[in-house]
Design a binder for these strands. Sequence first.
DNA 1: CTTTTGTTTCAATCTTTGTTGAAATCTTTG
DNA 2: CAAAGATTTCAACAAAGATTGAAACAAAAG
Lengths: 169, 169
Amino acid sequence: MKYTEARQQLIRTWGQLSTHWGISRTMGQIHALLMVSPDPLTSDQIIEELKISRGNVSMSLRSLVEWGIVHKTFIPGDRKEYFASEKDVWKMALQIARERKRRELDPVIQSMQHLQAINPETASAREVDELNKMTTQILDVAMQVDKMLDIGIRSGGQTFVRKLISVLR
Amino acid sequence: MKYTEARQQLIRTWGQLSTHWGISRTMGQIHALLMVSPDPLTSDQIIEELKISRGNVSMSLRSLVEWGIVHKTFIPGDRKEYFASEKDVWKMALQIARERKRRELDPVIQSMQHLQAINPETASAREVDELNKMTTQILDVAMQVDKMLDIGIRSGGQTFVRKLISVLR
DNA sequence: CTTTTGTTTCAATCTTTGTTGAAATCTTTG
DNA sequence: CAAAGATTTCAACAAAGATTGAAACAAAAG
């Protein structure tokens, strides 16, 4: 398989995957491109390579930087901004997990905590009971997952999952 | 807090969350409604409760059944179909994980395996090398996560995560 | 077999999300 | 500080995704 083909396929696959993760296809593609580039790239190189507009590249890069998986670098004597991706995939995965925890899990925990105090006079016992059972369970799951992610984040990806698999096998 | 308010908030929160997970808001809301209902519901009850169209309810329910987190039941002497959600949140979470693994992780693994054979003549050594490093890493992560999910699925959610946390703390 | 009741399908429509490109802004340099 | 280079913003547009509603279909009852 030729290099260019392979690279294109990686970019396509990653762009595809990213849409499942609340990240637009373009962001995923830019990210993939940065991942496989030995050196940091400028927005012009990205525009050229992926045929997308300057505005889109600018916004996508900002968003990737906000996710914490891409960073700006500067090359001495050059006025342009260069961008590079985190290259350690485990670190990347954990960084994404950390962000998603913050954006998705934390709000659920907060919401379920509010729901812990239902006035039992306001519906039949069965209904109140069923609702309470669900909120309690959801809260429980969310908090356990939260704890797990914390541990994962602290111990670093590779170590974390390796250890975990060896222990549970 | 009143029962009806609380229930509505749960439905809203769950619908919101679901959009982050490749599941439409409506599917999430229907699912939440089924989760907190002590008894199975018909599509008419869902239409009534959530004010959505019959067609949408039909399609959403089908999709939820395909995800394996909702099932049809029948009530003797009644011609209608009733629907009920899985009530064990851990089982639910694992079922979702299993499906996402199948839909998202497995294709990535397949794709990366294809990319393992790049002809080194077709680009500079640095470029080929960088691409190989990334595909290998991604494959590694994907396979480890895959393995982890398998273990999780086999041992059942609660046990799995509890054990995991106690071991790694 | 016909009617009634319940369910599914799908083209049309609406809503949301992503993208473009040009103007505005910011930065460096002569 | 003016000009050139680089980046960001944002209103208009395009694409993708979700929803509706009515017609087609299926199953049970009379």
